[in-house]
Simulated assay, not measured.
Amino acid sequence: MVASELPAARAGDERAFEALVEPHRRELHVHCYRMLGSLDDADDLVQETLLAAWRGLHAFAGRSSVRTWLYRIATTRSLNAIRDGRRRPPPAPAPPFEPPTPSARFEVPWLQPYPDALLGADEPSVRSLAREGVELAFVAALQTLPPRQTAALVLCDVLGFRLAEVAEMLDVAPTAVKGLLQRARAAMPAAAPATDAGAEAKLAREFASAYEADDVERVVALLTDEAWLTMPPATERYDGPPAIAAFLRASAAGRPGGGYTLLPTRAGGHPAFGCYLENRARGLLVLVPNPSATRVVGIARFLDDDLHRRFGLPDSLG
């Protein structure tokens, strides 16, 4: 089909071009998200990639597949966006209470979670990459690498491109790609194993019940000793159950409007919840379970009040 669509697209047929690139649009979006850690930036970069492809179609010689060609454009655009400082978080909202002193600084405040629904749950090839490809810890760790290391790791280890293909995409020698890969792999945490779906659902229900009730003791009982709490785009990070408990108590005591109501969804292969205060959407919360799904390793509380719409959640509760 590509053989017949390519000449028509080169001749200016926009429908033929759409047919050529549409099968790759979703995976390009995931790729740009991995590179920049932001849904909003991924939206922009996919549009930039397809526009560049349309304008540069005459130069596509067909020596590689259309998919490989599009990934080269998307990777180049992503690297340019990082170089130009695209990964700037929006201002963090001021809390309506005095928070305790954080344990550390969260270094990726532009991070946003990726909706599982956008991964294509009906496509096994896409679904199999969900946890390693877009889970929060993995994507956050990618953001701390030098950009070319990020690109090499994603293209080779997640997407399975050959070394020679990646070298051409990055316009470097294959030996340089090997070096980028070695340094990136050494810096990345071990991949998280898959969790039991039933145990994970039970843990999510228990957490939601305790969180909605502002029952800090019950929440803390569900945490591992190494648990963390982050609140992008805020830069505060709270490490360990005592620090998390102190923050949750301060939040419950100083928050106007009573307790939260949580609506379940999924983000980056993890349980997630839309947060509602006085029936109005107030961001998103993502849980990171331990491998056995008996305890919570991390809580990512995203403070973007528009983020729920990316997950198909309502603006308000009836």
Rank of each mutant, 00 (worst) to 15 (best):
Thr76Lys: 05
Arg88His: 01
Ala184Gly: 10
Pro96Val: 12
Gln149His: 10
Pro232Tyr: 12
Val220Asp: 02
Ser38Tyr: 06
Leu277Phe: 06
Leu248Gly: 11
Thr235Asn: 12
Asp214Thr: 05
Leu51Phe: 02
Asp214Trp: 06
Ala53Leu: 01
Ser65Val: 02
Asp84Trp: 02
Leu223His: 00
Met188His: 15
Pro113Trp: 07
Leu263Gly: 00
Pro289Thr: 13
Asp304Asn: 08
Asp225Tyr: 05
Arg282Ile: 01
Thr68Gly: 00
Asp157Thr: 12
Ala208Phe: 01
Gln47Asn: 02
Ala213Asp: 09
Glu135Phe: 05
Pro146Asp: 05
Val166Gln: 10
Leu223Cys: 08
Leu307Cys: 06
Ala121Cys: 05
Asp225Ala: 14
Tyr33Thr: 13
Glu206Asn: 11
Glu212Cys: 12
Ala210Cys: 08
Arg309Ser: 09
Phe138Asn: 06
Met1Trp: 00
Ala94Thr: 07
Arg237Ala: 12
Pro113Glu: 06
Pro291Val: 15
Pro89Tyr: 09
Ala167Gln: 06
Asp306Gln: 13
Glu98Met: 00
Trp228Tyr: 14
Glu165Gly: 10
Thr75Glu: 02
Phe311Met: 02
Val108Gly: 02
Ala213Arg: 04
Met169Val: 09
Gly62Leu: 03
Trp228Ser: 15
Ser209Phe: 13
Leu36Cys: 13
Met169Arg: 09
Thr49Trp: 04
Leu36Thr: 15
Leu222Trp: 11
Ser292Gly: 10
Arg55Trp: 01
Pro314Ser: 11
Arg295Ala: 12
Phe273Asp: 03
Gly283Arg: 12
Thr261Glu: 10
Glu132Met: 03
Asp196Lys: 04
Gln47Ala: 07
His24Pro: 06
Thr235Asp: 10
Leu285Glu: 15
Phe311Ile: 04
Gly85Ile: 05
Asp40Asn: 13
Leu229Pro: 01
Leu313Glu: 00
Gly312Ile: 02
Thr224Gly: 09
Val296Asp: 09
Ala52Leu: 12
Gln182Arg: 13
Val158Phe: 03
Pro95Asp: 05
Ser65Cys: 06
